[in-house]
């Protein structure tokens, strides 16, 4: 099954490149680093129904790193939330696929994000509400690593531990890149796992491109009771396209035609 999923992530990566190229702008680096995490979540863990995006019992996913919207849209289209052709409307006037996700425009998006540092707070509110109702939904928050520089994230980390939110899982896409440079140069966040542990979170560190490791970590997180869980996913910014990998220049720019062709060739035939 993971073999099939591995094949499908190639298609997802290709969709990311195609839609950003069509839009002429967007964030390929962080979309390519997070796509394997989103693919495993939707395929094996997140209870959802693309035909009923408002199903109350669904699990919730908050993509706190909203600039990775192309990755979310690619997975959502693949799951059948909307027709794949719509991916090519990304960032256009009137499109449901806004530059950063907005829930009231696109059913299936759980929260408007893009102002970094807010997603974990929103997710912990969702987990509190689910616990109050006793309805058993789990909440997944996927954040960037540069985003951990926002003070609000640490407010939320404290609060989730205080409230013992065991139905809340945070996955940090630790690709060590942000707009102005490498995270450890711009404003270091490491040792991240130790910090998360000291804030009262069950914490594990994995290879964020190893589908089996992602799957196992999400299963292990689900089994933890009494505390929230963090998964630090070590990733490569721009993963899957050689000239984008670990190159900060590809944080937020679209490939031109020849770059697009080269990227697609590497992804699909490399």
């Amino acid at each position: 099954m993971l073999t099939e999923l591995a094949a499908s992530t190639k298609g997802l990566r290709a969709d990311i490149i195609r839609m950003i190229a069509a839009a002429g702008s967007g964030h390929p680096g962080g979309s390519l680093s997070v796509i394997d995490i989103l693919a495993v979540l939707y395929d094996k863990h997140l209870r959802h129904d693309p035909k009923r995006p408002d199903w109350p019992q669904r699990d919730r996913l908050v993509l706190s790193k909203g600039h990775a919207a192309p990755a979310l849209y690619a997975v959502m289209a693949q799951r059948g939330f909307f027709p794949k052709e719509e991916l090519m409307t990304l960032r256009r006037l009137g499109s449901r696929l806004q530059g950063h996700p907005e829930r009231h425009r696109l059913p299936g998006v759980e929260a408007a994000t893009g102002s970094l540092g807010q997603g974990l707070s929103i997710g912990l509110g969702m987990a509190l509400a689910a616990r109050l109702d006793g309805t058993g939904q789990r909440v997944y928050v996927v954040s960037g690593d540069g985003e951990m520089q926002e003070g609000q994230v640490w407010e939320a980390l404290m609060a989730a531990a205080k409230f013992k939110l065991d139905d809340l899982t945070l996955i940090v896409d630790h690709n060590n890149g942000q707009i102005d440079g490498h995270v450890d140069e711009v404003m270091p966040i490491d040792p991240l796992a130790e910090k998360l542990k000291s804030f009262g979170w069950d914490t594990r560190v994995i290879d964020g491109h190893d589908l089996g490791a992602i799957d196992a970590a999400l299963s292990a997180a689900k089994a933890v009771r009494g505390k929230p869980q963090a998964i630090v996913a070590m990733t490569v910014k721009g993963k899957g396209v050689s000239f984008m990998e670990n190159n900060i220049a590809w944080h937020g720019k679209a490939p031109n035609q020849s770059e697009t062709e080269k990227a697609l060739k590497e992804i699909l035939h490399g």
Binding site: R60, S121, I122, G123, A156
Partner: peptide
């Protein structure tokens, strides 16, 4: 007490958590 949540001196987190609760149907 079961319907009251103390967030400490951290208003941003409180406000965004309220948004999350509202998106689940609560009236925070």
């Amino acid at each position: 007490p079961q319907r009251h949540f103390e967030f400490g001196i951290a208003e941003s987190n409180m406000i965004a958590a309220a948004a999350g609760m509202a998106l689940m149907g609560k009236v925070p």
